[in-house]
Each structure stands twice: as structure tokens, then as C-alpha cells.
Design a protein around this nucleic acid. Structure first.
Lengths: 211, 211, 211, 211
DNA sequence: ACGTAAGCGAGACGGTACGTCGCGTCTTACC
DNA sequence: GGTAAGACGCGACGTACCGTCTCGCTTACGT
């Protein structure tokens, strides 16, 4: 059973408000945007705004929810037989960056300095979850040998999710200068070489990269 | 020639206002703090606040300036004969984390989710500057061999400064669970193994870490 | 030809709305009553209210119309051979107070301080009309002698209608402490002794009241 | 020790607001006047209004207070040796109507149908107080003989204060068609002949008025 | 040490935005 | 055709903060 679609007018109103929020945040930064600004831009009465959302932040959160829901639906559970590699990004990395690409304008705005730190944190939690599961799997897979730990694991995991988020930010800020496939690969390389290596997860390294 | 100290009362007023800002930001987050809050906490008349600062942000920026000045004074110019190593953090890494340690309360508050993203960005720029110079040096030093580039250099540099900042945040958020020396070492390892390696900067790796 | 009765549902709706208006005015005063209050109390949809009435005041006016129509139907034209007396209220005085008695709740509410001044004014106009005709008759009837005028006639007439209305208000406010016959008599006495006398209308005064 | 005058600006602000209230009430009726109307007319910021008064009604009440205070200061306590007469209004009647005359614009507006019933009630209470004391005195003065009671005393007293108020209203509504002295005399006559007589208070009646 | 210029407290004020309430209109769907 | 349910535009409300101004008091500094 699927949930009933709201009325046409309601959907139109909400869409216009969301659009106005993104536009205005792009123009003057999230903090500077007022509810009045949003409703004027959307050509919606201010009171009507409050009939749908508690405040500016509520509008943002609900929009973010939808986007995060979309990401969650796309993400696959971590594979059990998974090979750590510097040549092939894992499927969820690809899913993540394709998702970012799709909502590029949104992410560019919201991850920017005048955007909403909250968004980065929510996504980071999402990534944390995926990676922690993954790392456990990786550490217990025969294809990975465990070496010496150079950095505390929790610090390394934290640095991983930060790295992913910051790369996503860099990617959209620079107007997607490469494909999702490529950026996912770069991300994988940085993480696998750095954080993974630091916590002793070993991996297949092509001959020419060996030290 | 030293600049004349402001009058006693003026220094007292400014100090009280700064103290109040930090306290209140700790308690309820920077955005929620109002000028009225600050002046009430500092027991300073609201008009007096405006005699010293343009607004809440001005107060913050001037405080940040002083802290950043302190950091800049401590930082040394990058060494020309510099050896990339996973065992010994470069001196500026140590300087940086010792500085963070000194102002730990300030950084904990301001880097936190209810803090001020602006601060992170200013510091990141600082770090970017240091690292870009350093990387140039490293790449042209005979002690480092240049290998294959796995990740675009600008992306790697960006990920470096992000990593440093995020580690600093993790460090203060977790109440300095290790010494400045240690955290500087971990940071160096993550960066050297990951980002440096990705852009082909090779380094001395102890025997037992070799793949 | 009688006017067609509205549909059953319509009559029910209007009756419920009227009832709710009176109740709510009793409870919190006319000004504080909102259309929403009325429709909630009447368990009628707010839009339905607007299908029947323009606004809260329209509902009141139409109800008042019906009540005033009732009063007008009962009132008799002033008699030509009419004796001014302090012992016997004229028939219309009786009609008036019996009418007030019948709609006591309504009058108590609407003449009260949180009621509707408009009502008092409409009734006062009604009374004015009756009295002006009457006074003309009285002044030209041989049974009344015209004495010296102590007060301008228009002022006296104004004071008469005010007196009647204020007595009606006093009567319902004090929960009808005497019969309609009695209150009509008191009213007549106050008017005949005061206003009538002041404009020179003389009257039969029982022996024991003479000065 | 006299109470300290508020600051010049404050007095100016309040005066402008009061003036605007009276003007606007004259133009469109008290109920239709909004705080926004008042502040725009007074060229005062709306927020400043709320710094001085709780709401529109508070502004009115405080203005009324001052006017009532003025009336109270002028009114004399009822004389003990007091002669009821139809030729000479008692001094307080004169005081009252002179007061009304002075604030004629205010009373015209506020006693009118689009004015504020509250005002009439406050004044009526003032008058009630004066008259009740006076009637007690009158009834126990040798110069007045007590005759038969034709109307309940409380009803008669009520009708007195109503009469005074309604005459005041008539007077200002008709643009003061006679002097305060005259209107006070008419009022006295109506009351003395009507209500006083009805409760048995006898008085000096010139020969030609005797029945 | 002491007079004076500054810093400061107190609070009125104009202004922008907030979130809420009530009004009256409109549409859709039911019966 | 009467009614329910509810979205919507509109105008006013009373409040919170902002940043400015003016009026006096007091206090630390320089001569």
C-alpha cells in the first residue's frame, strides 16, 4: 500500500517553497534567508508557509529527508565477499556520488560555507554507518591481511567519513570536473591508501605502486 | 614600537564580552546567542557592546584574529631540506596541535556543530597555504621520488587540509585523548600514506610496513 | 400569500448558529466571539456559515430583525383618546415589557456591557417613534393641559427613550425582579412625572401625591 | 512631592498616539481602528506603541483615567445642607457639564454609537456614587419632606445616572446647543421632577408649576 | 592630585522578521 | 442543492532583536 499523494495545490505550494529556499540560499546564504524572502520568491502567502512548515528549518529538514531517503534506498548493504582495491570503487561509493551528482545544486548550496552544516553531519552519519560495517567485513575477509595499526581505528573511521564528505563538497564546488566513476575512484584510493592502510587493512596494490 | 594598550576599562569590557560569547556559544550554540544575551552575561550595557564591535560576528572575528595571529606567529616557514616520514611529524604539525590544545575550549565550541563553520574555513586556508608550499618543496627534493599520480593534486591537497581540520575537531571533541605529539603523528601518517602517496610523493617506509 | 419556508436543513443550520451566537456572547461577550467559535459550537462547517450570513454581524442583525419584527407586530398605534396617568401604564408599555420578558435572555446578553450597543439604539429608535406620535397626541388632547416648558422638547423625548431602554436593561440584568405590569408602571411614572411634566404635559395626579 | 514628569520624547509620543486614537475613532469608529492605523497616523513606530501601552484598549483606558481623574478632582463632596430645587442646579452638576464641555470632542466620539460603551459605564459609576450619597443626605434633610414611594429606589437611582449620561451624550452630539449652566438645569429638573419625586423626595416647586 | 576626556549605564526609538489568529473565498467530494 | 473538509490570500496582532541616538554619571589617565 502506497501512501496517498497530497493534493495538487499542496504539492505545488511545497515545491515552490523548496525551490525558493534553494535559490535564495544560493544567492545570499542560508542564514540570511528569511521566511518572508522565501514566500515572496515563491509567490506564496507567508501564512500559507506556516500551514505547511514550522519554520525555515523545518522546510529544509523535510527536503533533506526526502533526499536522504532517496540515498538510503539506493545504497546497497555491504557485500560480504568484498575485495579492497585501488582500481575499482565499491558499488556504494558509486551510488553515493551519482546521488550527489543528481542533486548537485542542492549539495553545492548546502555544503557551502553559507550553507547548512547540519546537512554534512547527517550525511556523514550515513557514511559512517556504511563504513563501519564495511570495515568489520574487510578486516575479517581472507582477501585482506591485517597489518600493523598506525592510527587509532575510531580516528581513522572519522577521517574516512570526513574525507568522503569533503571530496563530495570539492566535487560540486568545482562543478563536477570529472565523472562520478572517477571521483568515486579517487575517493577510494585516498581512503584505501591512507585510512585503511593506517589501521592495517591491506589490499591489492598494483606492482608499480609498491614501495 | 609597541602599540598603545587600550584603557583598562576598555580591556575589561572586551574581555568580559569575549568570555560571555564563548560561554553562551557553549551553552546554546553560536546562532542562538544574541547580543542581548552576551551583554547580560557580561553585565555590560548593550550600547557599550556596539561601541566596541559592529555586531556579534565582529566580536567573534576579532577574537579569532588574535588566535590566528598567535598560530601564525608560531608556525615556521616550511623547511627546504625536509624528509617525509611516517615516524616523525613535521614541526609545524606539532605547533598546530599544541596551539589547538592551548585554545581547546575555544576550538571545541567553534568547530562543533553549533559552532561557526567560518572558523574551520579560516584555519583550513591557513593549512592549505602551508601544505601547498610544502608539497612543492617535497616534490622537488631529491629525498622524495615522484611516483605515479593516482588522484588530482588539487583534490589531494584539499583532502589534506580537511583531514587536518577534522582530526583537530575529533581531538578536542574527544577531550584530547592523546598528546599533541601523538595526534600530530597520526595526522602525518594518514596524510603521508594517503594523500601524499596518491600524488606520487614517496617516502621512507619502515621495513615492517612495506607491502 | 405566505413566504416559502426554507429547507429543513437550512432552518436547522440557522437555528444552531443563532443559538451558538447567543451562548457564546453570554460567555465571553459579543466582541470576543469569532465565526470559528460559533461554527464549532454549532458543529457547523465554517464555510457553511458564510453561505448563510455575510459575517458575524449579519447573523446578529437578522436575528435582531426577527425579534424587532415581533415587537412591531405587537405594538399598537397610539390611541387618540388617551389619558396620561401615573396609575395605569399605556398598553404599548406593557406590550414592550412583555416582549422583553419573552426574549429576556437575548436582551440581557445584548444590552449588557459586553453586548451590542447597536441593539439598544435600534430599540430606542422604535420607542422614539412611538413616543413622538404619542406626545403630539397628548399635547393636543383636551384631557391634558399644557403648562410651562421647563426643558426643550427634543431633549425630553430623548431622555424618555433612554429611560425606557435603561429600565429594560435594569429589569433583565436584575433577573426580572417584578412583573411586566409593575415595571411598565414604574417606567410610566418616572416618565410622566419627569419628562412629561418638564414639557408641560399635565396629568391626573392622585390626591395623596399632590404637592 | 509631585510625581516626576516623564521624559520629553515620551510625553510627545504618548500625546501623538492619543491624538491619533481620537481622530481615527472619529473617522471610522473605535472598533475599526487598528494599532497600525494609530501608529501610522501618529508617525510612531508600531513597536514603540507597544513599549508604552499593552494594546489599543490600554491606550484608551489610560487616557480615560486622566480625564476621569480631572473630573474627580473637580467634583466636590455633596453638601450637607443642600436644598433640592428646580431652579438652581447643584454645583457638581455644573462641574460635570463643564468638564464634559471641555473634553467635548472626546466625549462626542466615545459616547457615540461607534465609540466605547465602557466609557459611559465608568462615568455612570462616578455619577452613581455622587447621587447615592446625595440622596441619602436629601432624604434626611429637614428641608425635604419624604412622600410616598412610587418607584423602587434602586431603579430610580439607576434611571438618574442613565439620564445624566444620556443628556451629556445628547448635548455633545448636538454640538453643545446650550450652555453648561442651562443643560445642568434641565438635567436637574428632569431628575428632580421624575426620579426624586418618584422616591418621595419633595422639593421647592414654584407656584405656577404646582398641580 | 586632580581636572577632563573617555568610557559607560540607562532607556527611547525606528526598523525587520517572527509565528499566530481570524477573516472571507475557493475547490473538491459526498449525499 | 446543502454540507464537510481544508487550502489559500490577506491583514493585524504582539514579541524579539537589531542598531542608533541622547542624556547624564563616573572613572582612569595625563599633566
Amino acid at each position: 500500500m502506497e501512501k496517498k499523494q497530497p493534493e495538487l495545490r499542496v504539492r505545488r505550494t511545497r515545491k515552490l517553497l523548496w525551490k525558493a529556499l534553494i535559490e535564495l540560499t544560493t544567492e545570499k546564504g542560508y542564514d540570511s534567508v528569511t521566511v518572508k524572502d522565501i514566500t515572496e520568491r515563491a509567490m506564496i502567502n507567508r501564512v500559507t508557509f506556516y500551514r505547511h512548515y514550522e519554520d525555515k528549518n523545518d522546510l529544509l529538514m523535510r527536503g533533506m529527508d526526502e533526499i536522504m531517503d532517496d540515498l538510503n534506498e539506493r545504497s546497497e548493504p555491504p557485500l560480504t565477499n568484498w575485495r579492497v582495491s585501488v582500481d575499482q570503487p565499491p558499488s556504494n561509493a558509486l551510488v553515493f556520488f551519482e546521488h550527489v551528482q543528481e542533486y548537485a545544486q542542492f549539495y553545492r548550496v548546502m555544503l557551502g560555507k553559507r550553507g547548512v552544516p547540519e546537512l554534512g553531519e547527517r550525511m556523514q552519519r550515513h557514511i559512517d554507518t556504511l563504513f563501519q560495517e564495511r570495515i568489520e567485513l574487510v578486516r575479517h575477509t581472507e582477501s585482506s591481511r591485517i597489518g600493523k595499526t598506525l592510527v587509532p581505528t575510531d580516528l581513522a573511521v572519522y577521517s574516512i567519513s570526513t574525507t568522503v564528505m569533503s571530496i563530495a563538497k570539492w566535487w560540486v564546488d568545482n562543478d563536477l570536473p570529472c565523472t562520478a566513476q572517477e571521483i568515486a575512484l579517487y575517493t577510494t584510493r585516498l581512503i584505501v591508501l591512507g585510512a585503511y592502510r593506517s589501521i592495517g587493512v591491506e589490499f591489492e596494490l598494483p606492482e608499480e605502486l609498491r614501495v
